[in-house]
Design a protein around this nucleic acid. Sequence first.
DNA 1: ACCTGAACACCGTTCAAGT
DNA 2: ACCTGAACACCGTTCAAGT
Lengths: 185, 185
Amino acid sequence: LEAGEEILRSEGSEALTLRAVARRAGVSQTAPYRHFADRRALVAAVAERGFERLRRAMEGALTSSDGRAGLRGVAFAYLRFAIDNTAAYRVMFGPELADRSDLPGLRETGRGVLAFVAAGIARLQGTGMVGDGDPKLMAVTTWAMLHGLVSLLLDGQVESVVPDAEALAMEATRIMMFGMAPRGS
Amino acid sequence: LEAGEEILRSEGSEALTLRAVARRAGVSQTAPYRHFADRRALVAAVAERGFERLRRAMEGALTSSDGRAGLRGVAFAYLRFAIDNTAAYRVMFGPELADRSDLPGLRETGRGVLAFVAAGIARLQGTGMVGDGDPKLMAVTTWAMLHGLVSLLLDGQVESVVPDAEALAMEATRIMMFGMAPRGS
DNA sequence: ACCTGAACACCGTTCAAGT
DNA sequence: ACCTGAACACCGTTCAAGT
């Protein structure tokens, strides 16, 4: 069944309905209730798989290079994941699952992504490439920047204002590293 | 009718349905079709009002002070708007309206927010408080950061990892200004 | 110019029942 | 342990019709 949803998600955008999943799995409309408490639980399960895939993509980008270039590589892997898996990304961060208080599993995988970023930043602090400060706060800030870029790009809220997504990503990483203030102010 | 939706949005979260709006307006289920082409058009109209309110809130925060403190004030006004108008904010940036290709009005108001941020940054460049660079790219990056913070906070994806939202906002603005790299590297 | 009522296809969800 | 079928309340949307 999980596999059935995967296909659904890659096919349509947010026609991720219990009945459609059941149809796709060749089973009756009410069968999914044997596996998921309700629609939200289904969506949460799909989102959880998305977060796991995202973390794997980021990990893959890191091993290929380390240091600041590694961090930039992770950032680009994040952007690419979002662009290549638009529907999944929207489910993962959409309003549907905004309230995670009753979804501990999802909270856990989300925290995994954050911990991964925090570990990378702590490592860069060790090599002196990133300054002092709480690595968790820095990680959340970095994640926020990535997620914000992705949202704006996916919403088309930025296109025709900033035609070049690559240039935008470069500028964003530059600002994250060196800031907008003039050097030495 | 517009007023009817306002109330609805402030009341429930995303039970923003045509039929519910009609009920609230004390009119038949199909009456809204005289005013909106379909449900999406209704949601877009509500979102547009949200963007206008957001821009007004940011403008109000700017006039009270200028310079870097002004920029920080605008950032805090943005965060406060999102926290105080969670449902509206989710509608404005939700997946429902992700494709704006057939919603020119919404695209316009979104661009208005961006232009406002870009103008503020250009002004700071004039006073030497912000370094050289394309103010549009900087504006999009700034907006992305704000939106990302809001999303993560609203999703509760961050709470219990970073208990203090205020500290997070301060750290984010610090990074936006001075970066994560050690000074003078 | 604005509204109504009936109708259709689609949901999520429940419940009694089957193997 | 897993599935089915009928049923209920809710949608978005269309269409013929009213004032």
